[in-house]
């Protein structure tokens, strides 16, 4: 087991965002987190990446308790990649520099080797000609692909994707989803929070429905999305279908 969250609790003031939540992710597995806004999907990802602390429970990565206060969070994050809804590229750096910064400064790899790897990645996702552009010259879909490459060059054990297509125009969603599908084929372990039910069905090995900070239902995509056992899940999916998103 690569990642395991055990009885995780997270509160913001009086609001309980994650409530005794448990979740396990095996290596090479793709897990899709679905649920309404505020159900705790993004918060869970941020907790796993130690961007925010938890109030109870344990999160283990490769068996190591990463929520132990004695653990250096920087070392943990070196093993986890994260992609954000609004890309969060560094606007003052070129695309290439965005990608090479962490390998150079954090992983202390040779500049020439990183550059070659970054250019190869950019070529694979069709952005070779954008290496020297600044992020504001790129479309949302292009920026998000760069953000994914930026996470991947660090060879993370686990990739967290936080609603990575939510800020994109509909015609740009496809190019990002294609890229993620490619990562699945290469065996990348991923946890993704998503509103794209169709995509969750295609790419996920397991779909987890969060409601009020708890795992209400989980299982293979066909079961959770096609034949949910819980009334809340059915209600949620009915609203999604109503909105034309499934």
């Amino acid at each position: 087991m690569l990642l395991s969250c055990e009885n995780v609790r997270k509160t913001f003031g009086a609001t309980v965002v994650l409530d005794d939540l448990s979740l396990a992710v095996d290596e090479h597995q793709v897990v899709a987190l679905i649920g309404a806004s505020g159900s705790g999907k993004s918060t869970l990802l941020r907790c796993v990446n130690l961007l925010t602390g938890i109030d109870d429970g344990t999160i283990r990565l490769d068996g190591e308790d990463i929520t132990d206060p004695r653990v250096d969070p920087d070392r943990v994050r070196q093993r986890i990649g994260m992609v954000f809804q609004s890309y969060n590229l560094f606007p003052h750096m070129t695309v290439l520099r965005n990608i090479t910064l962490a390998p150079e400064r954090v992983h202390k790899r040779a500049a020439a080797e990183i550059r070659a790897q970054a250019l190869e990645w950019l070529g694979r996702v069709g952005l070779a000609d954008k290496a020297d552009s600044y992020p504001d010259r790129l479309s949302g879909g292009q920026q998000q692909r760069v953000a994914i490459v930026r996470a991947l060059v660090n060879s993370p054990r686990l990739l967290l994707l936080d609603e990575v297509t939510s800020a994109l125009d509909p015609e740009l969603v496809g190019e990002v989803l294609t890229m993620i599908r490619g990562l699945k084929d290469e065996g990348m372990t991923m946890v993704l929070a998503t509103h794209e039910m169709g995509f969750a069905r295609q790419v996920a090995d397991r779909v987890v429905f969060l409601d009020g900070g708890r795992v209400l239902e989980e299982g293979p995509p066909e079961q959770v999305l096609g034949d949910p056992t819980q009334a809340r899940t059915r209600q949620f999916l009915a609203r999604i279908i109503e909105a034309g998103r499934l």
Partner: peptide, 10 residues
Amino acid sequence: QLAAARSLGL
């Protein structure tokens, strides 16, 4: 921006 940088391990 901080979150993105820290998530890269910086």
